[in-house]
Design a protein around this nucleic acid. Sequence first.
DNA 1: CATGAATGAGCGTTCATTCAT
DNA 2: AATGAATGAACGCTCATTCAT
Lengths: 209, 209, 209, 209
Amino acid sequence: METRFRVSRKALEKEARKQDILDAAARLFSQRDFHEVTVDQIAAEVGLSKGTVYLYFRNKDDLFHAIVVQKGQSLLRKTRESLQCAGDFVDCLREFVRAHCGFFEENVTYFRITHSEKTRMTAEGKHRLHDYADQLFHAHLAMLMELVERGRSEGVLREEGSLALVKALRGILTAYVFHYAFGQSETPLSEQAEEIVDLFLNGAKRQAP
Amino acid sequence: METRFRVSRKALEKEARKQDILDAAARLFSQRDFHEVTVDQIAAEVGLSKGTVYLYFRNKDDLFHAIVVQKGQSLLRKTRESLQCAGDFVDCLREFVRAHCGFFEENVTYFRITHSEKTRMTAEGKHRLHDYADQLFHAHLAMLMELVERGRSEGVLREEGSLALVKALRGILTAYVFHYAFGQSETPLSEQAEEIVDLFLNGAKRQAP
Amino acid sequence: METRFRVSRKALEKEARKQDILDAAARLFSQRDFHEVTVDQIAAEVGLSKGTVYLYFRNKDDLFHAIVVQKGQSLLRKTRESLQCAGDFVDCLREFVRAHCGFFEENVTYFRITHSEKTRMTAEGKHRLHDYADQLFHAHLAMLMELVERGRSEGVLREEGSLALVKALRGILTAYVFHYAFGQSETPLSEQAEEIVDLFLNGAKRQAP
Amino acid sequence: METRFRVSRKALEKEARKQDILDAAARLFSQRDFHEVTVDQIAAEVGLSKGTVYLYFRNKDDLFHAIVVQKGQSLLRKTRESLQCAGDFVDCLREFVRAHCGFFEENVTYFRITHSEKTRMTAEGKHRLHDYADQLFHAHLAMLMELVERGRSEGVLREEGSLALVKALRGILTAYVFHYAFGQSETPLSEQAEEIVDLFLNGAKRQAP
DNA sequence: CATGAATGAGCGTTCATTCAT
DNA sequence: AATGAATGAACGCTCATTCAT
């Protein structure tokens, strides 16, 4: 039992170390391009030796993808939870947007990563990202589709083209996160959730009195 | 006169060659990251020698920025023209969206470039892009602001936060271009202009009867 | 204690490796021009890979300057020591010339380097050499000045223009080293010290009986 | 006859153009290293196209050597003439030193070139310089030898080692030119001829009263 | 003769990756 | 497990040289 305990403690330590590397790397990747961050810098950021990084990740690509996957999972989990809300579609949509905003508020630094990675992924036809990361991306899309479908079935959203609605929602969300992440200091992202929902649902037109 | 003709022909040829390089490079930059495209590849793509590329551009960065600037100018010109329409705000908005869609329909390959470059630019605070490219970016933002202001002064758009409206419009536009550029074959982008305008103005809610 | 020993041994080995590179590079720089020696050749000469050289020196310039500085220091040290002789001016002058000759006898290969570097340094006005190498050069000049002044104060040397005397001494010294370094095999340089001193002090004229 | 005239005029023009290139190149080579001067720069300095330079010189090396040879010939001619003086050895020596100084005063810019080239030449064992330049170098040495021999046969110079005397003379001369060429503004070199002769003949010692 | 566009070998430098300790 | 020295492939860039016009 002592051995089991030792092993498990070791395993935990190892996991912790791995997470340290992921965090350090993510910090750097959010500031500079994939190719502009060197393994040396990552190692220095965690306070480890370059060789040690290779004990935890097979190569630089793996490390990068691990970040994308981990953050993707996290986003997916949080937004999924938000959809289990008790209320009606609009309530749930509000929760969803809040979750999305909350996630990126806490992970501003990861926005650039996922942003550029999403692009790369789509452009090169999955050659670069592991299947799992690919699945995550599509899972996110699917979840949005579901949400929109529900809005439709509740009679709140338009009947035509649910893909169009998904595009609009993602577009507005992304634009807001973008401005939050790169723009000069603004109001907290999560406080803008209501605004996003409003714009998405009612559009830019002045409301009839 | 023959001499004059010869000289001008040479100058034209040189300009044409420069454009060839720009086009070839843009093709590659749209498929892979800046650092993943080598000057050798660019040269090969045009059918020239590596050294020759350096006769036309001081370095790889310059070449890249030349592309961004050229396309940025083009987009700016086309969208600006669209705003000189005779009709009311909604007409102009429709023209604007059409121009935007039309441009990216013809320049799908440039979307990724400007997409990632815009990110990099904002992130690194103008350190990398020439002033001119910087100006272009802000000019585009300013133009959108103007358009939205007009919509407000005509009483069509909401009174609150014009930045919010700009975000929404850009977000939806970008999302549509993104899906067109990377998604599997869809309807022509320009045919989706009406849909974009509708979503932006009226939102996703089912319209009251 | 074993650890301490290991650490210090590693540090020593690293220092030794660095010196190996310096020596190999110096050998090559003495045979060919700075620009005619490639980093690849230097690496091959030490039996290392090109990249390894860059673990020890930031770049080719640094490596070159390290050689100049190291040898300059050595020359300065040895000649300075020689001036602490007990005897009168002529004794000290003799010691000085011997030290100078002795140094270049052991460092023939470095003569060309310092020779050409001195030229470059003076010509380009300190733009290329690190401040330290610059200081060394002037320290050497200053030392010669001091020596000559002493000869004058002891009533041995002429009263007029000590710079003239410095020029003459350096000129003769350099000429001798030059012939030794590049000429076909001759008598050891250090054995020519007496001759140099004699020519410098008494000139080429046949001595009055 | 008109044809002959035309041809000869053309030949003259060609020769003049060639000289222009030599002069421009020499100017640049005196400021920067051989490898730091580009053929492009040379062409620009003469106001010609790069390709044109290759009509007059087979390659960059040839051009460089042509300069060295031409200047060497010129120095040789001028110093040889000086030796045809009517007076005794000391008069002739004085004339020689004056000629040497005069030459480098007018050709300060060429000092560095010949300086570094002489080194390179001796170091690499004639592999680089054309035979002719090699001959020039040795002709200069031989001339000095002759001069010194004459001084000896007239009973003015010491009996021992004429090579030693040649070394001393060349050393002092070179040192003076060096200081003139690179040092901060000094008295004209030719006015220092007397001083050089004095130092060479009588040495640095204070003269007995 | 003169041009200058094109070439391509070659250099300095970087950096992901390996491996002996 | 951790290190960090060593590697070597690869890249951006330069420039002497050629050649069609």
